[in-house]
């Protein structure tokens, strides 16, 4: 019963946050000023009439409350507005860019959490060992290295080829332009392009996860139930994986999901550096072009995914941790 109430409260909370984001999004982007005018420089013989027409077309001539109602209605119908810059529906622009990002973030988050957790477990288990100290130094280094800098170094080393490094990988992009691969060849081509951004993104976030996992495991390993298990003759392997890791994973998982917002911001840099045509690159170019409808759509999407991820985390947490279920 209490579990149900917990779930309902979490879902309600998420919906409220989303509603807030929706409203905030609307007013924030109205507040930055009328973007129509700067689109028109370079237009042959634009008239004031045409400007008005464009404003009307974009719904910018209505009173603010009406614009808001319009906006909410449209958003729920999946219409996120019309890109000033690409002159296409925002939903179409975003839809065309979403998969590369999901692929990149998905795979690299999987890899960085899996690897980070794994390294963290080993570090925690052999705390103070050479491995632990080496990994600590390594992960702190990768964690603190700015992504753009790291990315540029990697491009120089592996894409352009400097000194002893041969130019192994493409400098950027999602696929070999114009190759027209299909099927497996296409998959391999995309993976080949993804190696470097994947590598940088994974390494950038690895440290965070391994550090959290390490300290979380150390804490768990100090608990009496671990000693109890050992005293009862539980094998070391099961002490770790049956008792310590499941308990230590919970905080790591929460952080991983909370981290999503940061990963999204990191992916903007990475996509820009590697010309990876995903949402991050779209964000960067839309900022440049002052393409507010697209930014608005992206902001909504990013916020919604972070909120939903948090909700999923809460629900998972309640499933995985019996203590929360009752709370």
């Amino acid at each position: 019963m209490s579990t149900r109430r917990y779930l309902i409260s979490k879902v309600l909370q998420a919906i409220l946050t989303l509603a807030f984001v929706l409203a905030f999004n609307f007013f924030l982007f109205r507040a930055v000023g009328d973007p129509v005018t700067q689109l028109l420089r370079g237009h042959s013989g634009i008239s004031a009439q045409a400007v008005l027409q464009l404003q009307r077309q974009l719904g910018l001539d209505l009173p603010l409350p009406q614009q808001f109602v319009h906006y909410v209605k449209e958003t729920f119908e999946g219409h996120l507005g019309y890109s000033y810059f690409y002159n296409l529906p925002v939903s179409q622009v975003i839809a065309g860019r979403i998969w590369p990002t999901i692929l990149l973030i998905g795979l690299s988050t999987l890899a960085s959490t899996a690897l980070g957790i794994w390294i963290g477990i080993r570090q925690g288990w052999r705390r103070g060992s050479k491995y632990d100290q080496g990994m600590l130094a390594f992960t702190l280094f990768t964690y603190s290295m700015p992504e753009f800098w790291f990315g540029l170094l990697i491009i120089m080393a592996f894409a352009v080829g400097v000194g002893p490094f041969p130019a192994l990988f493409p400098t950027g992009g999602y696929e070999t332009t114009g190759a027209g691969y299909t099927g497996m060849a296409h998959v391999v081509d995309v993976l080949n392009h993804m190696v470097l951004p994947f590598f940088v993104l994974t390494l950038s976030y690895l440290g965070e996860y391994s550090l959290i996992m390490r300290s979380s495991l150390l804490e768990t390993l100090g608990e009496d139930f671990i000693i109890t298990a050992r005293a009862k003759g539980v094998r070391e392997n099961r002490v770790l994986y049956g008792h310590a890791v499941p308990n230590a994973l919970l905080p790591t998982m929460t952080v991983t999901i909370l981290q999503l917002g940061f990963v999204l911001s990191g992916v903007i840099t990475i996509e820009l550096i590697f010309n990876w045509p995903g949402l991050g690159l779209l964000t960067a170019t839309s900022v440049d072009a002052r393409d507010f409808p697209v930014l608005q759509g992206l902001f909504l999407l990013f916020s919604a995914s972070v909120i939903v991820a948090n909700l999923v985390a809460d629900l998972l947490y309640s499933y995985l941790d019996p203590r929360v279920r009752a709370a």
Binding site: L168, T176, G178, G180, V188, D189, N192
Partner: peptide, 29 residues
């Protein structure tokens, strides 16, 4: 991957088509 990359470093052209690629620094409007 490196092997594939090496194999692909020339613009591949399936079915013997010739493909001309030009680069620009801003997206189309």
């Amino acid at each position: 991957f490196a092997g594939i990359a090496g194999a692909q470093s020339a613009t591949p052209s399936p079915a013997g088509k010739s493909t001309f690629i030009y680069g620009v620094t801003a997206p189309n409007s």
